[in-house]
Design a protein around this nucleic acid. Structure first.
Lengths: 266, 266
DNA sequence: TCCAATTTCGTACGCTGTACGAAGATGTCA
DNA sequence: TGACATCTTCGTACAGCGTACGAAATTGGA
């Protein structure tokens, strides 16, 4: 009824939850009545991370986590507003586990480090690939990570915008490799065969079904891949190859600029 | 009881379903008894694609699709073995809708075309991003696509393995851009605010909560981004930048090789 | 001591994919 | 023409999900 600044707090409540440990979060002046909470948000998030690591993100159900603490499922909702928020907290918390090594002098090594760190992390916690596409949440550990990533591309001669975009390309590429590794592992798990076993088991069907279709390049390339690795793909080598090309491109770009050529981006 | 080659058919039943239209699939000698099916697999898959386009992959439920045809939910299972198979069919079928343009002469333009085609497709059908990570299914349209993609990198001086990896880098990058656009759209939908509105609404909370944390580079880069576009990111420009760098890197690689330098990959 | 505040959690709802089995439709054969 | 085998259709049911709701239990402050 009044025009008092009664703004309904448009701000995202998840932010305070994400930054709960860092200085600056003012404790809300809550009365301390009521039972003490039996566990902490961190314990819950850690348990959820462990569960996701061990059995995949699908196994991270509210009921399963609660059970780990001997709690009722609904009890979790006094710690965390909902499952999506929990996933967000998991993502930030697991990001905080990796220590960020000092950056080497050599520009190529710096960029490789950024990509490899992301890749290793996603291999250890593949469920991050499924979580990430909620939002690039601004948690404290994600922010630390981003700052570190920017340090890796600082001083190369890139514009501010290009620094951000370069980081995005690198970690995006690392994510793609990790994703293809995950797919491969899952396919083996689901079918119960290795990749080469699958090809063997389906060779007859494939050639029957593809009779009349002509894939000269795909056949040649597929054969080459099958001989080089003994599978259709080898993510580790894909990582090396693609990363080298991307870094080549970035370094060529800044090199070209520093020798006085035109640049097309602000 | 006998040692007759009674092999339990290890081959993937989904393959015959994927290739159902192409020559070479032998019709199984089934008796023609029983009622005729009222719709076709193609109609079901098309309806599912339309639904996914309009309301997202989560809206693609067996019940919802069946209802579109006035069928009972369980009826779908006489057309398709399960939901995952349906998603696979959707992915291949929607891939077949895009026509594959003739490839230009200029190598750079060819690689750009491969990436842009993928990007446009994923913008039109973002749910492909959620489906793809089941497996790179060997459907007829996916196979056509792959052959076309290989044509784009044929003759550049890449080895067979490198051709495959180059295509993977390009379409993976296009997918990442599409994914970040999707995230952005979803975030706006969920929060009901544009990106800049969100930053404005959370500015106070952010600075309160991040007090004590120092992100000099992130602040500088973030400010630059906010001024350049009026948002934290601009996927269209990220596409141009990253694509240019990747292609730079690939062309530098083959250029270096053709001028007689060493190559590190088979 | 009593109450207000808070946590805990049992129950329930709507939604999902899909297993099961009955019912109906159709072609084939005696 | 009937009887039967085979196929499609689909109602019902189940387990599992996130979570809304409200009651019960617990605690600190007045």
């Amino acid at each position: 009824m009044s025009d008092v600044p009664d703004q309904p707090d448009q701000s995202d409540p998840s932010l305070r939850l994400l930054w709960r440990h860092r200085a600056g979060v003012r404790e809300e002046p809550k009365t301390k009545r009521g039972p003490k909470q039996k566990v902490s948000v961190d314990e819950i998030v850690d348990a959820a991370i462990d569960l996701a690591d061990a059995e995949g993100l699908a196994a991270v159900t509210m009921r399963a986590i609660a059970q780990r603490f001997g709690l009722g499922a609904m009890t979790l909702y006094s710690y965390v507003p909902n499952r999506d928020a929990l996933l967000m907290l998991m993502a930030d918390q697991v990001t905080g586990r990796a220590e960020l090594p000092e950056l080497p002098e050599d520009p190529r090594k710096r960029l490789e480090l950024v990509a490899n760190l992301t890749h290793d992390e996603l291999r250890a916690h593949p469920w991050l690939l499924e979580v990430q596409d909620v939002r690039p949440w601004l948690g404290p550990n994600m922010s630390d990570r981003y700052e570190w990533q920017l340090q890796a591309v600082e001083g190369l001669g890139l514009s501010d915008l290009e620094m951000d975009q370069t980081v995005a390309v690198l970690i995006g590429f690392a994510g793609n490799i990790a994703r293809s590794e995950l797919m491969k592992r899952r396919a083996e798990q689901v079918t119960g065969m290795t990749e080469s076993e699958w090809w063997e088991a389906n060779y007859d069907t494939l050639s029957e079904v593809m009779a009349g279709a002509h894939y000269p390049l795909a056949n040649r390339v597929g054969t080459a891949a099958g001989e080089a690795y003994q599978a259709a793909s080898d993510p580790a080598r894909e990582l090396d190859y693609g990363l080298a090309r991307i870094i080549d491109g970035v370094l060529a770009h800044v090199g070209r600029r520093s020798t006085g050529a035109a640049d097309e981006l602000s």
